[in-house]
Design a protein around this nucleic acid. Structure first.
Lengths: 339, 339
DNA sequence: TTGTAAGCGTTATCAG
DNA sequence: CTGATAACGCTTACAA
């Protein structure tokens, strides 16, 4: 194994000092066109590649972006395996990162104090938070002066980091309007945590639509999680048992899938016996049978926008919050209310 | 922002030299129990965390594992978004990596020469290849002496790196036997690339089963990709048009999903008009309607085994290839041949 | 325009 | 058992 070339090798070959090489590397100061060319040649001949690790040590920059995911059972595996929303998000982030010379590091961290350690250990240049985390984490990060962009969070909770999210209130509103137009009055709104701002906004939209239509909205139905198939399945069974609802609005497409399955397992039909709306519009949703009526989040776009903002802030720019448009996508899992 | 503590701060506080601190940090040499305790205390008080970047520079170890993914259109996004197989894989890898103090770096690289640069730039400790890549990449990596484990590849192609894969031949065989038992003689075996060893093995198994049953197997049906929904959909249409087949065997669950959808869009039924088998058993497959009959790859287990092997090799161990068992999972997308 | 030398936080070599 | 001191590969005042 030929030893890899260092800046020193390049310098010797080009008969200049390491400093000069560094200058042309960083496009800094004025290097005579002549030496510059010599250096460039030497670099090419030696297949020289700068060592990020060394650069990281001096510049305190790593070209590394940390992506922080929600954690289930000490691992990000559960959430990544269940809900492809996160995968679509991550792949979009990775794309923008790569285009800008960054690599991404995935993690889900349990204790807040580990965040500081992680950022320091790796000299992380910036952070992308997927979802809402305990407030102390944001203030920790602030105190370290590390840039961050928050995805799917409302700013009131975030210690002032810019957020990229979606108009959840509108999403809830549109879903409800659609269901109302189909004649559904007894609609179950699934919720796992009424304190979560995302869920709350969606519910607000839901209420607004029902109010406008002067229809009384039944109380929300509690569920363990809005991200898992299992909790959707359980909620589906519960809803069928109550024999009261003609429609249900889920917090994610994954949950909606669970509901659909529960309906089938009970020998009933979607949308014949129960209309179902999802949320997210993950890739899969258009492929299913019945294809899911859902609220499209533009996941990929959201991820790309957030990543671009982060890169911009890392490079010294300013960014502010952005809310991405959202829209209802009507497909086959919703139909007219029976009767 | 309080400046972070370095090894020097710890040394001063404990009234020892940096060297000594380093010793206790690395559990090396014999440090008197007394000083050791003092150092530990100082570390705790200062919330000291060793700087991976600096360590990486001296030790040429980064605690970083590179995960190399197949690339579509210069980006890993396409494959991550379409086929959740990769996500389940990655999350399993991430879990093992974290447990062993490693972070993972995702990439898909276009030109082989970039691999060397990437490994060097980041001082990567090891590599995990997902799928088959051009041979020159493996020899490049060999020449750099970087440990690697290959997933879903057969060793003949890999320049001797240990591989972790699945008994594809058996998978094809089991799927074919199941279909034969249901009376399907006209079965379409979908293939995108007859040179790919994975596809070839599966087809071999398929042939074996048909031979044993003394049934003539129709020639395979070509498709653009065995990983995308779209190509499954297209293949589904083609197969229906031919009006010859009563069953089809897809190369992934994602493709199978596309086929199912094509059947529905044609006003027909699965499995009534066409039986469909998938491959992989991704999470989603058990949730669908009809739930997919498929060959289970134990994706998570495969990922964990590969990651563990890699960690072992990185730590100086030896590893050899391993083939993981595979099994047919019969669900609702297959049924008796009509007539 | 180019070079010298110190420094980033850590480990490794070699003395004491 | 402990400590100087020189690396690791690169950047950055400061000189020349």
């Amino acid at each position: 194994m030929e030893k890899r070339a260092t800046i020193r090798d390049v310098a010797e070959r080009a008969k200049v000092s390491k400093t000069t090489v560094s200058y042309v590397l960083n496009d800094v100061k004025k290097v005579s066109e002549d030496t510059r060319k010599r250096v460039l040649e030497a670099m090419a001949e030696l297949h020289y590649e700068p060592d990020f690790t060394a650069i990281s040590l001096t510049k305190r920059k790593s070209q590394l972006i940390g992506v922080i995911m929600p954690l289930v059972n000490e691992s990000i595996a559960a959430v990544m395996q269940e809900n492809t929303y996160f995968n679509e998000m991550i792949s979009a982030i990775e794309k923008v990162a790569r285009e800008n010379g960054f690599d991404i590091l995935l993690t889900g961290l349990a204790e807040p104090e580990r965040y500081r350690a992680w950022v320091q250990k790796r000299h992380l240049d910036g952070l992308l938070f997927l979802g809402l985390f305990p407030e102390e984490i944001y203030s920790e990060m602030r105190s370290m002066d590390v840039p961050a962009i928050l995805i799917d969070t409302y700013e009131t909770h975030t210690g002032d980091y810019p957020s990229v999210n979606v108009d959840d209130e509108k999403g809830g509103y549109e879903a409800a309007r659609h269901l109302l137009a189909l004649g559904h009055k007894q609609t179950a709104f699934l919720t796992s945590n009424r304190a979560d701002p995302v869920e709350r906004e969606r519910y607000k939209g839901f209420q607004r639509a029902y109010k406008e239509a002067a229809v009384k909205l039944p109380p929300p139905v509690e569920t363990a999680s809005v991200h898992s198939f299992e909790s959707g399945y359980a909620a589906g069974r519960k809803i069928l048992e109550e024999e009261r609802f003609t429609a249900v609005s889920a917090g994610s497409d994954t949950t909606a899938l669970g509901i659909v399955r529960a309906v089938h397992d009970a020998g009933k039909e979607v949308p014949g016996d129960l209309s179902v709306t999802g949320f997210d519009d993950i890739r899969m949703s258009r492929y299913l049978t019945p294809a899911l009526t859902t609220v499209r989040q533009h996941i990929e776009r959201k991820g790309m926008i957030a990543a671009k903002k982060l890169v911009h802030v890392i490079n010294g720019g300013q960014e502010k919050a952005e809310m991405i448009d959202i829209e209802l996508v009507v497909r086959d899992s919703t139909g007219p209310a029976p009767g």
